[in-house]
Amino acid sequence: MKADNPLLAVLALAAGLLFLSPVLYSIWMSFQTVDAYYTGTVDFTLENYQAAIGQYNFARYLLNSVIVSGAVTLIGLAVATMAAFAFARYDFPGGNVMFGATVATLMIPSHITLIPNYLTLAKAGLLDSYAGLILPAISNGFAAFFLRQYIRGIPRALDEAAYMDGANALQVLWRVIVPIAKPAILSMGLYIFISEWNNYIWPLVAIGREDMYTLQVGLARLYRVNPGEDVIDWPLVMAASTITILPVLLGFLLVERHLVRGIMMGAVK
């Protein structure tokens, strides 16, 4: 690693800290008692987290978010990889139309589907359920489009060899394509997971029962109903906010490079 001009380095670090200061301070605040916060003193406590997790049910919201984002990622990746394989390796009647229809979803604002999807899932009795949160989120062509570009870059000779060995299409996909495309699939998986984790408007519409809230909806509501009898209990809200941010934050620190690469590849094909 190259050395930096120390002065510049210090300045840059200060700028970075300043940039993130609202979030950093909110995390600090979440460990303070509400009295300490309002009187400007320092008094460490874990009570805010206890209250958020217990009384305000954020443990449940966390579980809901994990289940929903996890399922959307797994199912989304599975269907996208299969479709991407079909689009990349087969020339079949209607294939262009199908691929076009898939790519077009990138341009279609999801908001146009809000009311009809609400009604569809209402009729199916799937509102207030995990399925109701998961199913509409699979309807996104981005991963398939992205993976199809990637798979096209994999030499066909590799498939060929596997077919010669008597493998069928699914086996080729699973044994040849997936291992090679793993970095792309992982990047896409992260992208889907984070998008779904942060999804707000659909759970807001589709979920009425408190115990089915995702973290996003639960946090927005906690902030809106103003916990605390007279003054808003900011430390409690910030504890809930930190719970909402933290899983993605930790994941981000672990896999930043994959993620950044995924976004770069997705943007500049």
């Binding site: 269907v79 199908m98 898939t102 569809t120 699979i138 996104n140 062509g141 996909l173």
Partner: peptide, 19 residues
């Protein structure tokens, strides 16, 4: 290829195009 593409297209049809 149809079988491979169908799951995704089913979702897209049901939750994007029909809506």
């Amino acid at each position: 290829p149809y079988l491979l593409a169908l799951p995704l297209l089913g979702f897209i049809a049901a939750f994007t195009y029909v809506p």
